[in-house]
Lab assay of single mutants.
Amino acid sequence: HYVEVNGKKIQATSAEEAEKIAKKFAKIYNATVLDLGNYYKVT
């Protein structure tokens, strides 16, 4: 599981952790979290 933010991949140990990381970055960048199955993308 990982999160992609601005083209950078951030490794996460679980889907739950990946979701938390994605939501945190989405809040910082006022962005949207896309759940793409095996990873989250912040756009």
Rank of each mutant, 00 (worst) to 15 (best):
H1D: 02
H1G: 03
H1P: 10
H1L: 08
Y2A: 03
Y2N: 01
Y2E: 01
Y2D: 01
Y2P: 01
Y2F: 09
Y2G: 03
Y2T: 04
V3I: 07
V3K: 03
V3Q: 00
V3G: 00
V3P: 00
V3A: 05
V3N: 00
V3W: 03
V3H: 01
V3M: 02
E4P: 01
E4Y: 10
E4S: 06
E4L: 15
E4T: 05
E4M: 13
E4A: 04
E4H: 05
V5Q: 01
V5T: 02
V5Y: 10
V5H: 04
N6E: 05
N6H: 11
N6Y: 14
N6A: 08
G7Y: 05
G7W: 05
G7S: 04
G7T: 03
G7Q: 03
G7E: 03
G7I: 02
G7R: 04
K8L: 13
K8C: 15
K8R: 14
K8Y: 15
K8A: 08
K8I: 13
K8F: 14
K8M: 13
K9S: 05
K9T: 09
K9L: 12
K9H: 09
K9I: 15
I10S: 01
I10P: 00
I10G: 01
I10N: 00
I10C: 13
I10A: 01
Q11C: 15
Q11R: 14
Q11G: 09
Q11W: 15
Q11V: 13
Q11M: 15
Q11E: 09
A12Y: 08
A12D: 02
A12S: 05
A12I: 04
A12H: 02
A12W: 03
A12R: 02
A12P: 01
A12Q: 02
T13Y: 11
T13M: 11
T13K: 14
T13G: 14
T13R: 15
T13H: 12
T13I: 11
T13A: 14
S14C: 07
S14L: 04
S14Q: 02
S14A: 02
S14H: 03
A15T: 07
A15H: 14
E16M: 10
E16Y: 11
E16P: 06
E16W: 11
E16S: 11
E16V: 10
E17I: 08
E17W: 07
E17C: 13
E17T: 06
E17K: 06
A18Y: 03
A18I: 03
A18Q: 01
A18D: 00
A18H: 00
A18K: 01
A18V: 02
A18M: 06
A18N: 01
E19D: 05
E19M: 15
E19Q: 12
E19A: 12
E19P: 00
E19Y: 15
K20H: 09
K20A: 13
K20F: 11
K20G: 07
K20L: 11
K20Q: 12
I21V: 06
I21A: 02
I21D: 00
I21H: 01
I21N: 01
I21F: 05
I21T: 04
I21Y: 05
A22N: 00
A22P: 00
A22F: 05
A22T: 02
A22G: 01
A22Y: 04
K23R: 14
K23G: 06
K23S: 09
K23L: 13
K23H: 12
K23A: 10
K23W: 14
K24N: 10
K24V: 12
K24S: 11
K24G: 08
K24D: 08
K24C: 15
K24E: 11
F25T: 00
F25L: 13
F25D: 00
F25A: 02
F25W: 13
F25R: 00
F25K: 00
A26W: 07
A26K: 06
A26S: 06
A26L: 05
A26H: 03
A26I: 06
K27A: 13
K27Q: 12
K27E: 10
K27T: 10
K27N: 08
I28K: 12
I28L: 14
I28R: 11
I28G: 04
I28A: 09
I28C: 14
Y29E: 03
Y29K: 05
Y29F: 12
Y29Q: 04
Y29P: 04
Y29V: 03
N30Q: 09
N30K: 11
N30S: 08
N30E: 05
N30A: 08
A31T: 10
A31W: 11
A31G: 14
A31Y: 08
A31E: 02
T32N: 09
T32F: 11
T32K: 10
T32M: 11
T32V: 13
V33E: 01
V33Y: 10
V33D: 01
V33G: 01
L34G: 02
L34Y: 08
L34Q: 11
L34M: 10
L34T: 08
L34S: 06
D35H: 15
D35Y: 15
D35R: 14
D35A: 12
D35W: 15
D35S: 09
L36T: 04
L36K: 07
L36N: 06
L36E: 06
G37P: 02
G37H: 05
G37R: 01
G37F: 07
G37A: 06
G37V: 07
G37Y: 07
N38P: 07
N38K: 09
N38Q: 10
N38W: 12
N38Y: 13
N38L: 10
Y39N: 06
Y39L: 06
Y39W: 12
Y39P: 00
Y39K: 03
Y40G: 03
Y40D: 02
Y40F: 13
Y40V: 04
K41W: 06
K41C: 12
K41S: 09
K41N: 04
K41T: 07
K41P: 02
K41Y: 09
K41Q: 10
K41E: 06
V42H: 03
V42N: 03
V42A: 03
V42M: 04
V42E: 03
V42F: 03
V42R: 03
T43A: 09
T43H: 10
T43Y: 13
T43I: 15
T43K: 08
T43C: 14
T43M: 13
T43N: 08
T43P: 04
